[in-house]
């Protein structure tokens, strides 16, 4: 992990760290890389991925409309909303 990669990750995830936090995280990444090496040493070539911890079956439900929320309800907690729209800064000049 280098500072360039960490900066890219911050941009991708829309998060900023302070310089101190960046240094702390880079130290953590180094430790995590060592842990990942231990995992890498385990032979999993013939092991399937385990996405679900319990056996899952696909469930198909009836296509019946249930209770839905109104636009007003959904916008009640919007930081800024007007005339039924969520407000954000101007995107196109």
């Amino acid at each position: 992990m280098d500072i360039k990669t960490l900066s890219r990750l911050q941009k991708l995830n829309q998060l900023n760290l302070t310089e101190t936090e960046e240094n702390e995280l880079m130290a953590f990444f180094e430790k995590a890389e060592k842990d990942a090496e231990i995992l890498a040493s385990v032979d999993t070539e013939n092991v399937e991925r385990m996405v679900y911890v319990m056996p899952m079956t696909n469930i198909i439900r009836e296509d019946i409309a249930k209770k839905v929320f109104t636009r007003d309800q959904l916008q009640e907690q919007a930081p800024e909303a007007m005339d039924g729209y969520w407000q954000v800064p101007r995107l196109v000049e």
Binding site: L39, A40, T44, E48, M50, V51
Partner: peptide, 8 residues
């Protein structure tokens, strides 16, 4: 790899 380790 972590998903496979989960199965291991």
């Amino acid at each position: 790899k972590a998903q496979r380790i989960r199965r291991v």
